[in-house]
């Protein structure tokens, strides 16, 4: 039996809440985010923001959370401490509310009152427009690249497609082994360790753990030519990237920021600039119609390519 597009969306909600969602009949492929806030109308982001009539109370939020955890909340404790859980298909579900102190100075959401379901959608071939700029044809290897953008502009999507192209090969470039450290399972849409989104045929993916540990495992045992990491930010991340760089692996990473300067100013990542680790910077931005564009810079900040529309090539 064919699965209706809206069925996928329904699978995030318990049975007693499905009728209302069914009534709206959303096309799952169009939905980017569902925001649930306690005692506030539900909002769905699909190109534009849509306000729904449903309002979920405290008990409803707990019920949804429990259902999202497959009635096994204990199995998601670590993710809960990090403020999100992963769903089948690589969809990330942000959770928060009242926090309570947990061990090692960490916090855990005691009362779940806000849930943000971010759907992972695969956009293949969007990296084809940038791949020529990040590949060193002379040495036959990719250049260390940092993808920079504010949240929600598709850093991870671009990274995933870049990984796929590097892994499978593209035009004259032969494919190579790519190691992915996917802490949150977002790059590969990993669910219980298996990649559900296409990251290429020569890609090994480590889900969970931390970046340093992941890079160490990849370098020692999987001989990657390139290591891909999502959302670097702290000092340990910078150290992990430096370790990968000095181990002879290429690095492709993403970071939150609105400009190159934003990243340079980050104390934790500043060292990477001083050591000239990254040779290419891809800055993502969006126009008024929310179309995503990429600008590419070299290590000195010279623009190699002006705003280029990122699109899925037919």
């Amino acid at each position: 039996m064919a699965v209706l597009k809206s069925d996928k969306l329904l699978s995030f909600f318990p049975e007693n809440m499905r009728a209302e969602w069914e009534r709206y009949g959303f096309d799952f492929n169009e939905v980017r985010e569902v925001r649930l806030r306690v005692n506030q109308p539900v909002r769905v982001l699909c190109g534009k923001e849509i306000r729904l009539s449903m309002v979920y109370g405290e008990r409803d939020m707990e019920e949804i959370f429990r259902y999202l955890c497959h009635d096994s909340v204990y199995a998601y404790e670590e993710e809960r401490k990090q403020g999100y859980i992963m769903a089948d298909g690589g969809h990330r579900i942000g959770i928060t509310g009242e926090l309570a102190a947990a061990e090692n100075g960490r916090y855990i959401a005691k009362y779940i009152r806000y849930i943000n379901i971010r759907f992972a959608h695969e956009h293949k071939r969007i990296a084809e427009g940038i791949i020529d700029y990040i590949y060193d044809a002379e040495n036959g290897r990719p250049l260390n690249t940092l993808i920079i953008s504010p949240p929600g502009l598709g850093k991870t999507t671009l990274l995933r497609d870049t990984i796929r192209l590097l892994s499978n090969g593209y035009k004259g470039f032969g494919g190579c082994n790519v190691g992915v450290v996917d802490e949150r399972g977002e790059i590969a849409g990993a669910y219980r360790g298996s990649a559900l989104l296409d990251c290429g045929e020569r890609t090994d993916i480590i889900t969970g753990g931390d970046k340093r540990q992941g890079i160490s495992i990849l370098v020692r045992t999987f001989a990657p030519r390139v290591i891909a990491i999502d959302e670097i930010g702290g000092e340990p991340d910078a150290q992990a990237i430096f370790y990968a760089g000095v181990s002879g692996c290429g690095v492709i990473a993403t970071a939150h920021g609105g400009s190159l300067e934003d990243i340079r100013k980050k104390r934790e990542l500043g060292g990477l600039f001083e050591k000239d680790i990254f040779k290419r910077f891809i800055l993502l931005s969006a126009d008024n119609a929310l179309a995503r564009c990429a600008s590419i810079y070299d290590e000195r900040g010279n623009e190699l390519c002006g705003r280029k529309l990122l699109r899925e090539y037919a």
Partner: peptide, 11 residues
Amino acid sequence: QMASRNGRTLC
């Protein structure tokens, strides 16, 4: 049944 995500709780 749990894997099918049919909306019903484990209980």
